[in-house]
């Protein structure tokens, strides 16, 4: 972990009260009865800042809205409420050349290495297209640049003439990284970059990403559900639950002294290698509530072991709890609920 935890100045990306709903298909009966159309509430007021040069990890269970957030960050999805600012500008208002410039500077790497590359284009065509559309190099220099990009992601030079199906999953992710890097972005949004890969390959791809971050001064938003991985690579971590960031803070502080009961449960649920440290304690009660019909008050009140009356009526704010550490929990107003990890919180991977 480098010394990037201090970040003076304005954030590079800031997310303000972001809400995203996906309307569900209305039944004919519902329409006649005049019922309001239902919607999946994927994001319910996300606030977040990403600072230049840092790696921000975003974790949460599947269905918590992490991927939706990632797609809003690169404007693949338009939010219903709130905004994403890049260098202070609302990205929803960028048009034409400004929008293309934003696309160039904020790139995404996708989860599925099999569907994220066009099966009918060679690697040379995939990279060359990005280079020529954004006029990154004069035409004559494009082959040279493609060779450089392949070197950068440690792929052999003969990869250029081949099609995606000729590569393994890990190699395909490298091609995806090379495509994103072709346009020399400032920010990489990696949505579950390695979750589709074998564990042995995961480390290679993640370490490549970290090396590239050093070499190219990249800012990275790393969306994942693997806590150990996020801890390994992030300067700061945001924990999401039901479409909201419920805790965010410097990685070590968050992992060693979590302030939100959900974060505690999540850390507690992470599988432990040492059998002596395993626990049989249930981390949380019940199931994840439906994102169609959200609980009132605190979103976590249906499963929280420390729930009390105020949690049923008032949604807690994501408030500063000291040292750049924020948590959205009423209990944190009175100090932190006791966190007794069933594992010891040392040893970053």
């Amino acid at each position: 972990m480098s010394a990037m935890t201090n970040h003076p100045g304005a954030p590079l990306i800031s997310v303000e009260a972001l809400e995203k709903r996906f309307a569900m298909r209305q039944t004919i009966v519902g329409r006649i009865a005049g019922r309001l159309p239902l919607a999946v509430h994927a994001l319910n007021g996300v606030d977040l800042a990403v600072h230049r040069g840092e790696t921000l990890g975003i974790v949460g269970e599947s269905g918590c809205g992490k991927s939706t957030l990632a797609r809003c960050l690169v404007r693949l999805l338009e939010p219903n409420e709130g905004r994403v600012r890049f260098e202070g500008r609302d990205i929803g208002e960028l048009r034409g050349g400004e929008r293309r410039a934003f696309n160039r500077r904020v790139q995404m790497i996708f989860q599925d290495p099999y569907s994220s590359l066009n099966p009918r284009m060679t690697v040379r065509q995939i990279l060359g297209e990005a280079l020529s559309v954004h006029r990154m190099r004069p035409k004559a220099e494009i082959p040279v640049r493609i060779a450089e990009l392949l070197d950068l992601v440690r792929l052999p030079q003969d990869a250029a003439g081949r099609y995606p199906h000729e590569f393994s999953g890990g190699q395909r992710q490298r091609i995806g990284i090379a495509r994103a890097l072709a346009v020399e972005p400032d920010v990489l949004v990696a949505d579950e970059l390695v979750s589709a890969l074998d564990v042995s390959v995961q480390a290679q791809v993640v370490n490549l990403l970290l090396q590239l971050q050093d070499e190219l001064q990249l800012t990275i938003v790393f969306v994942a559900h693997d806590l150990r991985l996020v801890r390994h690579i992030s300067h700061r971590v945001a924990v999401m639950y039901l479409g909201k960031v419920i805790e965010i803070g410097p990685t070590e502080a968050l992992f060693s002294a979590p302030r939100h009961p959900y974060t505690m449960a999540l850390l507690d649920a992470a599988p432990e290698l040492d059998p002596g440290r395993r626990t049989r304690r249930a981390a949380t009660r019940g199931e994840l509530p439906s994102p169609v019909d959200l609980p009132g008050g605190c979103l976590f009140n249906t499963r929280c072991p420390h729930v009390f009356e105020r949690c049923q009526v008032e949604r807690p704010l994501l408030a500063e709890r000291g040292g750049d550490h924020r948590a959205a929990c009423h209990l944190a107003d009175f100090g932190t609920p006791a966190f007794e990890p069933s594992f010891t919180a040392a040893e970053p991977a």
Partner: peptide, 12 residues
């Protein structure tokens, strides 16, 4: 499919 999104994210 993601490759279409990748193209959109590229600003194509």
């Amino acid at each position: 499919l993601d490759y279409a999104d990748a193209g959109r994210a590229m600003g194509y």
